[in-house]
Design a protein around this nucleic acid. Structure first.
Lengths: 361, 361
DNA sequence: TTGAAAGCGCTACCAA
DNA sequence: TTGGTAGCGCTTTCAA
């Protein structure tokens, strides 16, 4: 393979570039081909202020050569000066789950508009991964990071935004659903339908929405004159132990647990759609019709929700939009703007078929 | 901020490194601190053959300093020599859909074992994106690419692996489900249950499995003495036009189309789980019980399949495993090994509740 | 209007 | 057992 380097034998001694084009064309090659200095070529390519002083004719020759050789600057060499990589990292528990991938979809949309690429790293809950991956990502010189439902302990030297936040480090911008509003929407819907004895699923401990959402359950129940009974609440993923990993499995198991305790509830406010769908199946298996015997409401609005039987009533969490917001916020911080420490996103009630007026039983 | 560069005033004139540590420690800084040359430090850090010749004592001093200053080599500077980035790119139609994200989950697992990171780019079907993103990804110096259900026209100068292949370029390694076997499994199951008039969903045109799967339908039907009637087949995404994007919507619409034509079928072999779930809902809405009036079988085995009503009978496509295989194959090619041009993965029949023996109607 | 030279952080060749 | 020096591909003074 022809090596460009060989063309420059002695400084000052111009040698016409050979016909052979190296595997990847470099600035130096272009300059030699054009009988110009790399400086000149670099200046016009990057359109720096100095480019004003270059003859129009020269510029045109340069651009023609760029076109001819399909020259593309080497980002890694550029980085050495600019320290910019136009890439960020996204940390998620598991890229395979619906929640993460919907958010990432939104993140990507916004990022690609800005010419950024992203690296995603799933830690699958492994503490070691969570601990070390910020480092290995910093090695790739990402300009910022987005933590999705992932704890960050120490402050990073780059901008960080968290979605479904469980970070404890300072200086993190947060994008969160307005959980109070979400619960309020669900509860007021159930209340309007006449439900009094409502069961609740509390989220798993490692989830960033669990605490806020549970607090909202307590507060809003009080507001609505509803009682949150211990007997009617079960936390996902704690009891009983299930090996299966999806939230739906946890929802199924949680519903079964509930049924073993009592059947005195007429509605269930689940933690999310996955657990709601699992619970619906459990109720059906136990011979309880949904929504006739028990109404079920989820949170999220997963795509399949409108195809299950009965179609799922839920509180929509605009994940795509939250992803976009996270990306926008991160880009703003990267560009040195000051941003809100926390941005709340509004949920929306989607009434379908899994909720119905309470019938006396 | 203290600038390390200032420490080296004149070559040869050693100056003790200051107490101040620069933002990010460099090799040069370390070397000055240790009163060694960068060569020496570099050699022991990379544990090159030459490292044998370095005094143990010196090595220890170096490692201690690395620890003390938390030195991490700059990958971008390293790249300039090694031309290696330990990163690959993954192209998908949409990272938000279940199919893509499950595959990526497998890809990531294998990649991270090998210390690789990946960039994902969703083109959302936009021809312009599909055309240009290989270029922009090459700019990031990825060492290979994985195309998921995405067309690649021209040969790339780096290794490429395709999953659900629709590439036309040469030199691509393919990972595919054994579609013939998948259809065979589904059809033999239905046949055993006594079904004779079976409806089919054909996949959308832009999907890599559509052709092979349809061919398999034709061939296996013949083998089983089943007839594939025009009236009983509808292609997803073609008719009628639906604006909604998910396959489930397409499945719902396709099923409705089918019902408008005839009700003379007793089973449906869908193109995948998404369309199967949409179809089940359509049948239910039309007053047809599944599986009593019509049996439905999907392909994929999505997580929610076992929670819908009725639980979905399906042919499992091991997406995680296929992702891992894709990554392994790509890594092998990157490392210069020769790999199979095509690897077929075996599907598996999962019998649940959406299929039942045919009852005479 | 253009070019020489230094330097970004690291590796590698050749000396000492 | 260790160091000087050149160079990877590019940008950026400073000079001409």
């Amino acid at each position: 393979m022809y090596d460009v380097g060989m063309a420059a034998r002695k400084p000052g001694k111009k040698i016409h570039a050979q016909q052979d084009v190296p595997r990847r064309v470099t600035l130096k090659f272009l300059a030699e081909y054009l009988q110009l200095s790399t400086t000149t070529v670099s200046v016009v390519l990057s359109d720096s202020p100095l480019a004003m002083t270059i003859a129009q004719k020269t510029k045109e020759r340069i651009w023609a050569a760029v076109e001819k050789f399909q020259y593309r600057p080497n980002m890694f060499a550029q980085y050495l000066h600019s320290k910019r990589t136009f890439s960020v990292a996204v940390l998620v528990p598991d890229i395979g789950d619906e929640y993460s991938s919907s958010l990432i979809s939104g993140i990507e949309r916004r990022l690609s508009e800005a010419g950024y690429k992203y690296i995603v790293a799933s830690h699958r809950g492994a503490p070691k991964e969570i601990e070390t991956s910020p480092e290995t990502l910093m090695d790739r010189a990402v300009e910022g990071m987005i933590f999705i439902n992932t704890p960050l302990q120490k402050r990073l030297p780059i901008p960080v935004v968290a979605v479904s936040d469980i970070t404890t480090a300072p200086g993190v911008s947060r994008i969160v659903i307005d959980n109070d509003r979400a619960i309020w929407l669900g509860l007021s819907h159930l209340k309007q339908l006449g439900h009094k004895r409502i069961a609740f699923f509390k989220g798993p401990d490692h989830n960033g929405d669990t605490e806020m959402r549970w607090k909202a359950v307590l507060e809003n129940s009080e507001k609505f004159g509803l009682e949150v009974e211990r007997e009617l609440t079960v936390q996902l993923g704690t009891y009983p132990e299930v090996n299966e990993s999806t939230v739906s499995h946890h929802g199924y198991a949680a519903a079964m647990t509930l049924l073993k305790r009592t059947r005195s509830f007429t509605a269930l406010m689940a933690f999310n759609d996955g657990s709601a769908i699992g619970a619906i199946r459990a109720f059906q298996d136990a011979g309880l019709s949904v929504p006739n015997a028990v109404s079920v409401i989820g949170i999220d609005d997963v795509p399949l929700g409108e195809f299950i039987y009965p179609r799922l009533t839920t509180v929509r969490q605009p994940l795509e939009q939250m992803g976009q917001l996270a990306a926008s916020t991160l880009l703003d911080r990267i560009n040195g703007m000051t941003v809100l420490e926390e941005t709340k996103v509004l949920p929306e009630l989607i009434v379908r078929e899994s909720t119905a007026p309470q019938r006396y039983r």
